[in-house]
Design a protein around this nucleic acid. Sequence first.
DNA 1: GATGAATGAGTCTTCATTCAT
DNA 2: AATGAATGAAGACTCATTCAT
Lengths: 196, 196, 196, 196
Amino acid sequence: MPKVGMEPVRRQQLIDATIESVAEFGLQATTINSISKKAGLSSGIISHYFAGKQGLIEATVRYLLTSLKRALIERVTTTTTPQQRLMYIVEANFARLQQQSDTTKTWLSFWAQSMHDVQLHRLQNVNSRRLYSNLACSFRSLMNASDAKLAAELCAAMIDGLWLRAVLSKSDQDQFEHCEQLAKGYVNSLIKQYGA
Amino acid sequence: MPKVGMEPVRRQQLIDATIESVAEFGLQATTINSISKKAGLSSGIISHYFAGKQGLIEATVRYLLTSLKRALIERVTTTTTPQQRLMYIVEANFARLQQQSDTTKTWLSFWAQSMHDVQLHRLQNVNSRRLYSNLACSFRSLMNASDAKLAAELCAAMIDGLWLRAVLSKSDQDQFEHCEQLAKGYVNSLIKQYGA
Amino acid sequence: MPKVGMEPVRRQQLIDATIESVAEFGLQATTINSISKKAGLSSGIISHYFAGKQGLIEATVRYLLTSLKRALIERVTTTTTPQQRLMYIVEANFARLQQQSDTTKTWLSFWAQSMHDVQLHRLQNVNSRRLYSNLACSFRSLMNASDAKLAAELCAAMIDGLWLRAVLSKSDQDQFEHCEQLAKGYVNSLIKQYGA
Amino acid sequence: MPKVGMEPVRRQQLIDATIESVAEFGLQATTINSISKKAGLSSGIISHYFAGKQGLIEATVRYLLTSLKRALIERVTTTTTPQQRLMYIVEANFARLQQQSDTTKTWLSFWAQSMHDVQLHRLQNVNSRRLYSNLACSFRSLMNASDAKLAAELCAAMIDGLWLRAVLSKSDQDQFEHCEQLAKGYVNSLIKQYGA
DNA sequence: GATGAATGAGTCTTCATTCAT
DNA sequence: AATGAATGAAGACTCATTCAT
């Protein structure tokens, strides 16, 4: 079955399979076999394309981060107001929950593992800071610099906290949307509180 | 070496060693050997007292939950005002970070694992609901029922979110205290916003 | 609880517990703990009285052999005819099955193990030869020497074969008695065939 | 080392190694390592082909049963007389002893274990019943139904008994042949006794 | 005389990696 | 390009033995 140009296809197949496996079994119980089986490929292919399990794990995290970033960029245009932009940030973050339930569990597994894996921790930090800076940037248009920083910090924590509790309690779709509404309401209250 | 009355001592030794090991290596890399080595005991003793690794893991989670609960109870007296009680709840939750840095990382590992372990998930839910009901109960003295529920939900998320971000960014002591202040400030703003 | 003169009591307790454990779990799954638990004693006592598990196993086999021997001696008197004596030999061997069902399974386990344990093999051979010589001695009164030897050999095999098939098929009491009758009938047919 | 079509080869290698190991060390002392070492393969391969030690044990028993069955079928043709057929049954059963001394000890170990292992017991019963029905079928051509049943039962016991005593006494080749002759003589005496 | 806490070697099993095809 | 057979280190668990009490 030697075909040319299969690389991007195979890589994505394996990343998708990794997300599914981590979601279903957890990071601990995810093996090279559980992944390759879900992908419908052989186990050897993982080392071929990702130089081992660890490489695939990292590539998967990078893919998730990129997806989140893209989810925001797609929403924002040049005519977007700061308030709208903030709402989009919230939406993009909760979209992790809605679009694909798998992604959610996977994300949390990677977070925990990042405590003990420098490579994952670096990636995790990029994501965390991006959320903060996106928020800070938007708030800055609506309030002074120090208030914007404070609002961004609080808002980032609120988003992560609502999201975390929703995931851990294995909430259903309605509860996810409820959390999203709470987050948006909180953004508005911050604007009202600190906004000029 | 056989002594009588060693059971409670050994059990606590092993639980402490488990917290240390999970903090240092992560739940995934924590083995029966890494634990027994830290405890200065043999590996066989774990099966003897906890009927296997899983039993020790669960006992450790139960211990952490009990500690958190006790941390709150110790602070609260009959003369505590609702506002003070809310502050104590915040403090008790952030004390996880201050008192023992190990506990923090351990906690997160268990959270992630609880997605794939029914026993751990049950324990995790007990904790999550306890935070919510403690907050709701205190807010209820200061505002109407529906506002109190909303405030408790938001506040629980804020505490978890701030705590999570502090842990994941491997913050130092000063940042932990900064987060605690943010949480307390948020409690006060909720009281001001919804309070009668 | 230090008492004097407990040795014979404890030894028998442990031997009985060993028979029970081997019958219930098999020789492979019989541990120092399964035995001591059945005996209602501590595990350490085994090393104390039998210098380890192996010593207890051998003592148990020796006890079973002695029991079998005694079962025959009790039946035989000076006035017993050769024919009666042969019937008693059959009865004594099948009594292993009737008196105590446990003994049966235990016996087979020890036989198998005797293939790989010189000590057990020696004991097993004593038993095997005793059956043969008991039979040969009795047949000798009824026929010439070479026929008696042949009859003894065939009869010993028939007894063991019937007994083995009864045990392996997990037969009930009725089937055991049926086998005993077959064995006795075979003894009579041998006497008729070769007897003067 | 990965080659295609190795599965049947590897499976047989491992089954042969299991027979050797059980013969040499006994079932109790046969480990995944003792087997894989004899096979000249790694220990992991056992789980790969047989999903664990237990699977290999069962496959080995099944192989032994099949071999015994085949040993009989090869001898019997359409022109075989009932008497000849009975002789072939005896021969096939004693061939276990002659062809491969290992098989013998292995067989006894499995018998003993079958008392405590439902899977093995089931297989053991298949074999036991097959011997009986083969004998009963052949005897039926030579005598009435009830006599044939009795003859088959006695004959099966005699074969197993002679075989067992030969194995347990660690007899040499000559003694094995002597036992086979005794068994054949017994068959003939049964035919003479009950035959029309 | 008796206990059972503690040990640690040994067992089965899992699984990431390698590599011949 | 892709497979999956094979490896072997590492994991959890078992259990006979030891020994302080």
